[in-house]
């Protein structure tokens, strides 16, 4: 579990076009620069927004990565809801849902 580095990578992708370009061309080359476990690597590689939410990525970082991956707003919200149903509540961070479900 290295949530810090998951967020660090997404933060770099969000704010630095050159990292974004490198990631699109050769994701493994970028991923190996961060201390990530297999679950985290898979979630990032597969653009699994719901799983990244469950891992505890701050929503202010995740929503931009989701947009970068082509998620429309309703699709992004739905991905998080589906992940809550599938995996249970968020594991860390302040973007955990307060009711344990996440639905309004």
């Amino acid at each position: 579990m290295s949530l810090y580095y998951v967020q660090k990578l997404l933060y770099e992708l969000n704010r630095r076009p050159e990292v974004r370009k490198e990631f699109c061309a050769d994701p493994q080359q970028v991923l190996q620069q961060y201390k990530l476990d297999e679950e985290e690597m898979r979630a990032i590689t597969e653009r699994d927004i719901g799983m990244l939410y469950i891992l505890g990525v701050n929503g202010q970082i995740l929503m931009h990565f989701a947009a970068m991956c082509g998620y429309e707003w309703p699709q992004y919200i739905q991905a998080m809801r589906d992940a809550l149903h599938k995996h249970g509540n968020v594991r860390a961070g302040v973007y955990a849902t307060t009711d344990g479900k996440g639905a309004i």
Binding site: M63, I77, Y95
Partner: peptide, 9 residues
């Protein structure tokens, strides 16, 4: 609750 499934609450 921005950028969560509760967005809009």
């Amino acid at each position: 609750w921005p950028a969560t499934p509760d967005s809009g609450k």
